[in-house]
């Protein structure tokens, strides 16, 4: 049961939350809407669910337009950011609520609730109230409640933001396994790229109400379509310059810019881990600081004629041999990307 979102736009007063966004989600896939907070991801999710109506565009689920359907008739499972469990109902009552209001027979209801409790590992918690559960348990109850009426589609709004880091890691693996078992078409919203890349089949990157790029995690990582995506996916070095005879040169760095007219302003983006550097005299720059970041090391240097440069390496990398503040270095760029420079450049 695929989902198609076609050219939706949503305004709140003068604020445009979502602008002409189209998404194609294939049946059975687990997709992530990834982007910074306030970028419109949750609004898209709420429009798909029917909690919010789009000003323009339409939503198609399983080949049928659902725009005319009320949220309660769309048969969608929704997991809220803070779970929104019914605080006065037990775990079992929460899970059974969707079946109860749809007037499912008592016996089948009981069985379905028992199945979900087994599936989600909630045995023994049936009669607890939400306030008596841990964050991870609440999360699983919320998912069970959403799955109970056998929805065509499961939507999760920042499902891991309300639990602490350790539990989060575990819940990610669990969600992925659950999805592999059930194959319900699912979309989740997140602002954490590692969450999106480690869990999702497909990632949609949303910023300021627009879709920046979509693709598998690898596609997006290897080939960021826009400057925003490149910057969003990790630490980068940014250099601006003008194209000269088919090359953009910034200090010692030189990148081919084919088919670009001479004098065109361009922006060069180098990812901190797409660089090699080693100790060499006279070299092209000087190391300022070496920072230990757990299992990685960050080198801050200054390139002659270009300015600051940041590079990251695994802690045991042989390249780091002899690197210390004040030493001269050589630099090799394995991948660099050029993007057209906006008329007035955005802030960092």
């Amino acid at each position: 049961m695929g989902i198609r979102v076609e050219h939706i736009t949503k305004r709140f007063g003068s604020f445009v939350a979502v602008q002409d966004v189209s998404l194609q989600i294939r049946p059975g896939e687990l997709s992530a809407l990834l982007g910074p907070s306030g970028g419109g991801k949750s609004t898209i999710l709420r429009i798909i669910s029917g909690l919010e109506t789009a000003d323009e565009g339409r939503v198609v689920i399983d080949g049928q337009s659902v725009d005319h359907l009320h949220a309660r008739a769309r048969n969608i499972g929704f997991v809220f950011q803070h779970y929104a469990l019914f605080r006065h109902m037990t775990v079992a009552q929460n899970i059974g609520f969707g079946l109860e209001v749809r007037k499912a027979p008592k016996e089948s209801r009981r069985r379905r609730v028992a199945d979900l409790i087994d599936l989600l590992g909630l045995q023994g918690l049936e009669d607890r109230l939400p306030s008596q559960l841990s964050g991870g348990q609440r999360q699983r109850v919320a998912v069970a409640r959403a799955l109970a009426p056998e929805p065509k589609v499961l939507l999760l709004d920042e499902p891991f933001s309300a639990v602490d880091a350790q539990v989060r890691e575990e819940l990610r693996r669990w969600l992925r396994r659950l999805h592999d078992d059930l194959h319900v078409t699912s979309i989740f919203v997140t602002h954490d790229q590692s969450e999106a890349f480690s869990v999702a089949d497909r990632v949609f990157i949303i910023n300021e109400g627009r879709l920046e790029q979509s693709g598998t995690p690898l596609e997006v990582l290897d080939d960021p379509a826009t400057e925003f995506v490149a910057r969003f996916l990790g630490e980068v070095n940014v250099y601006d310059g003008r194209v000269h005879e088919g090359f953009l040169r910034v200090g010692p760095i030189e990148v081919a810019a084919r088919d670009v007219a001479d004098g065109t302003p361009m922006r060069m983006i180098l990812r901190a881990y797409d660089l090699k550097l080693w100790r060499e005299e006279p070299g092209v720059g000087v190391v300022r600081r070496v920072l230990l970041l757990g299992d990685r090391v960050k080198v801050e240097a200054v390139l002659d004629g270009a300015g600051p440069l940041f590079a990251q390496f695994p802690r045991r990398s042989s390249l780091l041999k002899g690197i210390e503040p004040g030493c001269r270095i050589a630099v090799e760029v394995s991948t660099a990307r050029l993007y057209p420079l906006p008329a007035d450049p955005p802030g960092p």
Partner: peptide, 13 residues
């Protein structure tokens, strides 16, 4: 949390 009411609506209430 108004989300509790939204949850109920989405569940079909």
């Amino acid at each position: 949390d108004p989300a509790e009411e939204e949850a109920a609506v989405i569940l079909g209430a």
